[in-house]
Nucleic acid binder design. Sequence first.
DNA 1: TTCGTATATGTGTAATAGCATATATTCATG
DNA 2: CATGAATATATGCTATTACACATATACGAA
Lengths: 88, 88
Amino acid sequence: MNTLLKQLKTARQEKGLKQSEFGKKLGLPQSHISRIERGKTDPRLSTVADMARIADHELMLVPRRLVPVIRFMTEGGNDQEPMWKPDE
Amino acid sequence: MNTLLKQLKTARQEKGLKQSEFGKKLGLPQSHISRIERGKTDPRLSTVADMARIADHELMLVPRRLVPVIRFMTEGGNDQEPMWKPDE
DNA sequence: TTCGTATATGTGTAATAGCATATATTCATG
DNA sequence: CATGAATATATGCTATTACACATATACGAA
């Protein structure tokens, strides 16, 4: 499907928001959130941008040659954890 | 207005495409491209994503704390040029 | 002027968005 | 197990709007 929508769903879940709460913050009905997350509808740009912001994210336009780097930074894993440890 | 749309427009221009050519690659009429770029309409997610790809870009969902870094990478300037040179 | 490009307008259609409701599904708790 | 509450998905029915298509206007350059 659309990976962006999947990312949005997990972002919402990580915020601990259910679809109805999420929708209320956006002024959207729960049913619509559901349809969007499952890819049953093609939402408007403003809708997705709003959803992103509520979920502490941002919708950005990225030049293709930077995509791999950014992908690594975002889904590369939890960078609360160090990526390597010095030899002891 | 929406900075993302402005970015899309300059991305198209940098590709040397006029609205009509751009639209043809997308299966969209020129009039629609015009309305979108001027913020007179709220396009669908798929439309914007398609426009991004044609313009050699990608629409990405980015965690808020990474936004400044990515902004620096993208609009930070031409990184064909090295950001520093070693002392000689 | 004529040509190329960008923006504007109007009409018809298809799809999103709003609203209410129905149907799972899971998970407690008696 | 049964029952009920909380969550997620589904459906039907309107209203609003993106989108398709044609056409018109504006403006600058050759």
